[in-house]
Design a protein around this nucleic acid. Structure first.
Length: 512
RNA sequence: GGGCCUGUGGGUUAGUCUGGCCUAUGCUAGAUGGUUUGGGACCAUUUGACCCUGGUUCAAAUCCAGGCAGGCCCA
């Protein structure tokens, strides 16, 4: 009977949130229901950030800025517009590099259908200013290599100017023609990019290692794991010597590239004439790296941690960490002052809190804050005032009374517990989504999988083949190689195609 | 790039095929007043919509054309 009453209107109970089982419905619904964005702005792929979503993004940026500060990067802000002739410079570089690569790399590593490199096809153009057509059109940055590397040579003169470690957090624009999805594929991208210049390759090597640590620190705070891979040659950023990418496995088994860091060696420096004078008075080209991340990080947080009841924010980036709910305040005039006092105590201790004194029944408030993913909810009513306690509900589950005297300890422990619970869940989730590749065999009528693959999974395998071997696998599975995983196998395994023993671990996945 | 589909209050939905009793339905959200408040309360009153521009017609939310916006599938 009780269950019946409770289930009386399941749609209403869930505010229309589809089950997360159906991730492709759940994700777009939750970003709007939780009030992160409003998708109704009339341009495809350009959502309006609502305050709650923007705050979460700002907190992620805050973590990034702290890492930049720790590692001695300085924040810049470059113009949004880039004159067309600079694109020509970049195109020249890309075609030169393409040629160089074709000459210098094992032909097996190249793909014939390699697409025209760069972002040329997806830039927005500014061709008029007022009434006049511009003699030199400008485009909106799809990324900032070009504008930044135009300025770097003016700033770098001597070895004393190096390393130059810069970053900026800005919006970039890409004209996506495919289906867009909030945070995951958008046309105006909230983008972080770090660009560095070093004296030599070793300097750039060290930077790449530092980038790897920064990514791990961020992933730790966001409470989920990721697969870090060196992208295959054919999937390397134009102009890069190599590209490392960080992929998060979303619940539908698709991988989402949330960060990349590229080692450029001195290739871009040669195109942009970025030189310095060394201690011997010799002119040398710099070696450069870039490191990019975007609002996709927030998309990964939403996808990784949310559940059927809504979002769950990791405490480090929760716009509200603790919501305080006065209960039955009309029955006891001390309720409001007492809860305000608790709020002040928590604020002074550095927590992000909100007192929800709306005239609603407590249940409605609980559901509201569950949808928004607030990690902790604290209730205080007349009963608690008498016993000197408060009631604490955790978004990850569980509810208990605690002494007010213990407030700060309880909150601190509960937020820690939330973080470790989220990390555990994310790890379990990865285990279910990443499977061992069953194997592939050559028969008279071509290559056949030894066992059919499951939909919505990522497959890991030992692989030591060349590009045509990779294509055999991609064709047979319909999946894409992420590249050489940074975590290789401890013991050599036979390569899935060639049978050669190797410790190289690779993943096959469907990418966003 | 090629093909298919859709557009009704803030959200969701009925009505469109078969033009007229549509002065446009239900739910939800919003406003006002009152009763309520320890896991989704209720009563009363109330605001609010046919994507845009043309066309056909005595008559268009409904049919036609174009535009804009959104979604899906294939390369």
């Amino acid at each position: 009977m009780l269950a019946r009453t409770f289930m009386a209107s399941p749609d209403k109970a869930k505010r229309g949130i589809p089950s997360k089982e159906d991730f492709n419905l759940w994700y777009p619904a939750i970003v709007e229901i939780a009030d992160l964005v409003d998708k109704r702005y009339p341009i495809k792929g350009m959502d309006v950030w609502k305050p709650y979503g923007w705050k979460a993004m700002m907190l992620i940026d805050g973590l990034t800025r702290a890492e930049m500060d720790r590692t001695g990067h300085e924040e810049y802000n470059f113009p949004l517009l880039v004159p067309e002739d600079l694109l020509e410079k970049e195109n020249r570089l890309v075609s030169l590099l393409k040629k160089a690569r074709e000459e210098g790399v094992d032909p097996d590593e190249l793909r014939l259908d390699e697409e025209e490199a760069g972002f040329k096809k997806e830039v927005y153009w500014v061709k008029h200013a007022g009434e006049n057509e511009l003699e030199l059109p400008m485009f909106l940055r799809p990324t900032s290599e070009t504008p930044m590397y135009t300025m770097f040579p003016l700033w770098v003169r001597s070895h004393g100017d190096l390393p130059l470690k810069t970053f900026q957090i800005v919006n970039t624009f890409r004209y996506e023609t495919k289906q867009t999805r909030s945070f995951i594929r958008v046309r105006e991208i909230h983008f972080f990019e770090a660009h560095t210049a070093h004296k030599d390759q070793e300097g750039a090597d060290a930077q790449i290692e530092e980038d790897a640590v920064i990514v791990q620190n961020l992933l730790h705070d966001l409470c989920f794991p990721a697969i870090v891979s060196k992208r295959p040659v054919w999937d390397t950023f134009p102009g890069a010597w190599f590209s490392n990418a960080v992929d998060v496995v979303m619940p539908n088994g698709r991988t989402l590239q949330v960060a990349t860091y590229h080692h450029y060696k001195d290739q871009w420096a040669k195109a942009f004439d970025l030189k310095y004078e060394d201690t011997e008075g010799q002119s040398q080209f710099c070696h450069q790296t870039t490191f990019g991340m975007s609002e996709r990080m927030l998309g990964a947080v939403v996808g990784m941690h949310g559940d059927d009841a809504g979002l769950i924010f990791p405490p480090k980036i929760a716009p509200i960490q603790i919501v305080l709910m006065p209960v039955a305040q009309h029955l006891d005039e001390d309720v409001i002052p007492s809860i305000n006092k608790i709020a002040d105590t928590l604020k002074s201790a550095g927590y992000r809190v909100k007192v929800d004194d709306r005239d609603l029944r407590p249940g409605a408030k609980h559901y509201d804050w569950e949808i928004k993913g607030v990690p902790l909810r604290l209730e205080l009513g007349p009963r608690d005032l008498k016993s000197g306690q408060f009631v604490l509900s955790m978004r990850t589950g569980g509810k208990a009374s605690h002494d007010v005297d213990e407030l700060l300890n309880v909150i601190s422990d509960s937020l820690d517990a939330t973080e470790s619970e989220l990390r555990n869940r994310a790890a379990v989730h990865m285990e279910h989504l990443v499977l061992d590749f069953p194997g592939i065999e050559q028969s008279s009528d071509g290559w056949k999988l030894t066992k059919p693959l499951e939909d919505g999974k990522v497959y890991q395998l030992a692989f030591d083949g060349n590009d045509s071997d990779a294509e055999i696998l991609e064709k047979a599975t319909g999946l894409t190689f992420l590249g050489d995983c940074i975590d290789s196998y401890n013991e050599p395994q036979p390569c899935a195609v060639t049978g050669r023993m190797t410790t190289r671990k690779q993943h096959l996945a469907r990418m966003y």
